[in-house]
């Protein structure tokens, strides 16, 4: 059975990579199979791990009628499929958006803004090591110049223009680093598949 699984996985891997030569029915088959399996898997897992323990058990085993409130609100979301009944979905949607915004706005303020401002300033305030201060100066220059680049209410010329241009270069370095990491990630996936083919399928690697 395991051998059969390895052969199926190997053939599907080759079918997917055949797209690199050109689009073909083998690739299409593998792609559709992946989509179908993923959706089917998600439905089964969601039903077993969420619907059963969070809805069926509380309602029918424990008799907790309060569970009906989120169940009804959830079902109202499906009213969006009908033009006449779409208004019914709004209370549930409003609750969901309200929860999302209420929970995420303060959390994002804390993590992305306050903590980052503190991290930018703290090496100077704490009189950290020379290395830390040099790093902090680079971060501060990067922060200031990129903010200047995204300030469009003043023409980018003179000293302001130089700062904005510096901001672009720093952004380019960031994009380069991100692209480098992306290449690394994609090659890792290739290494994974090649290792599988060579080790488990062809037994060329120990």
């Amino acid at each position: 059975m395991e051998l059969l699984g390895i052969w199926i996985a190997a053939i599907l891997t080759l079918a997917v990579y055949s797209f690199l030569y050109k689009d073909n029915p083998f690739y299409k088959f593998a792609e559709h199979l992946l989509v179908g399996l993923s959706v089917g898997f998600l439905i089964v897992i969601a039903f077993n791990d969420t619907v059963v323990p969070k809805i069926f058990d509380p309602l029918f085993v424990k008799g907790n009628m309060l569970t009906l409130i989120p169940v009804v609100l959830g079902l109202l979301m499906f009213a969006r499929f009908s033009k006449q009944l779409t208004w019914l979905s709004r209370p549930a949607l409003a609750l969901y958006i309200g929860f999302g915004a209420g929970a995420s706005i303060p959390a994002n303020m804390q993590s992305y803004i306050l903590a980052q401002i503190k991290a930018t300033i703290s090496p100077f305030a704490e009189l950290a090591s020379v290395g830390d201060i040099i790093n902090a100066v680079i971060v501060l220059i990067g922060l200031a110049t990129i903010l200047i680049y995204f300030y469009f209410s003043k023409k980018h010329e003179g000293a302001f223009g130089i700062a904005a241009k510096t901001g672009i270069y720093i952004l380019m370095i960031f994009f380069g680093a991100t692209f480098g990491f992306t290449v690394m990630a994609r090659i890792s996936l290739l290494i994974g598949r090649v290792s599988f083919l060579m080790k488990d399928w062809l037994h060329l690697m120990s």
Partner: peptide, 11 residues
Amino acid sequence: TAVMATTFYPF
């Protein structure tokens, strides 16, 4: 994944 690495350096 390596793709996400730059997102987490500020943290």
